[in-house]
């Protein structure tokens, strides 16, 4: 096309800038992490030769393995809770009339634009031993004395769900928006009952949204280290906490790097599943 011929210098400048930025600040650092994960820990230079797989072996150390599995467990529960709350929510939202929908979506993304630390802190006000929830339960006569809510596994999960729920709802909402009523009517018309329609039509058509939501929730749910820091105490750590400790406190870079690569691989796996599900529906994968 002619426009691009005339703009060759501009085009070149833009491409160099973008590629430069991404190669220098995304690709190179990630290569560095991969490299670090196969090197040896060194107290002064952080990493040193020789190359080895000690860091990966250390991942299977029962101590860390337990932390990882616990983190994965909490992330999985968080994702499941988000899905259970979010799926019917997104469906109900997509059936509200357009004018109100705008407002409701606005209300949904307000928290997303609000400082997440502050919101986590607000939960602390509610969950603390002499906080609002305990006071309310006691005055209602449900409890006799304050229960330990803060610094529990439950508190961490509540915190993660609270922060991540919108990320589950938004992709689900968008698939429900695309789900046309006539498809459902056609299914009923062809003799499918409510459950059969749900299983054979609704679920497959909303699957890409489910997977996108899972991806957007599960990964941060393993990495948001400040949530356990504020709500979970020292026993309910996430993979994110381990990585952070290894890098900033224990100074064991190879191990931290190996842990983060595990996280990246999980992401790759989820992205692959998401693409696959979209391709099944005949859409171009993202």
């Amino acid at each position: 096309m002619m426009l691009s011929i005339k703009q060759q210098p501009f085009r070149a400048a833009v491409l160099v800038l973008v590629w430069g930025w991404l190669l220098f600040l995304v690709l190179a650092p990630n290569m560095l992490v991969v490299g670090a994960s196969v090197m040896t820990r060194d107290p002064s230079t952080f990493i040193a030769l020789p190359l080895n797989l000690d860091a990966y072996r250390q991942l299977f150390n029962p101590l860390y393995l337990e932390v990882f599995l616990h983190s994965l467990y909490m992330a999985a529960i968080t994702t499941l809770v988000c899905l259970l709350i979010g799926y019917p929510f997104a469906w109900a939202l997509s059936r509200v009339d357009k004018r109100q929908q705008m407002l409701l979506i606005f209300l949904l993304i307000v928290p997303f634009w609000t400082n997440s630390l502050v919101r986590t802190y607000a939960l602390k006000l509610i969950l603390a031993t002499n906080g609002l929830l305990n006071s309310a339960l006691i005055s209602l006569g449900v409890l006799d004395e304050p229960a330990q809510l803060l610094y529990t596994e439950g508190a961490v999960i509540v915190g993660l769900v609270y922060l991540l729920l919108p990320f589950m709802i938004l992709p689900l909402y968008s698939v429900f928006e695309d789900l046309r009523d006539d498809v459902l009517l056609a299914s009923h018309d062809l003799g499918a009952g409510r459950f059969a329609t749900f299983k054979n039509v609704i679920v497959p058509l909303t699957l890409p949204g489910v997977l996108a939501g899972v991806m957007l929730v599960l990964l941060p749910a393993m990495g948001l280290f400040f949530v356990p820091d504020i709500l979970g105490g020292s026993r309910n750590l996430l993979v994110g906490n381990v990585i952070k400790n290894q890098f900033l406190d224990a100074r064991n870079w190879p191990f931290g790097a190996a842990a983060s690569i595990v996280l990246t691989l999980t992401m790759a796996l989820l992205m692959f599943a998401h693409r696959l599900s979209k391709r099944r529906l005949g859409e171009e994968g993202a």
Partner: peptide
């Protein structure tokens, strides 16, 4: 760009720290 958007922040964080 998509990977940067999807990858856990902590992965980006440590890679940049290393750099």
């Amino acid at each position: 760009l998509f990977v940067v958007m999807m990858s856990p922040e902590i992965v980006l964080a440590i890679s940049l720290l290393g750099l």
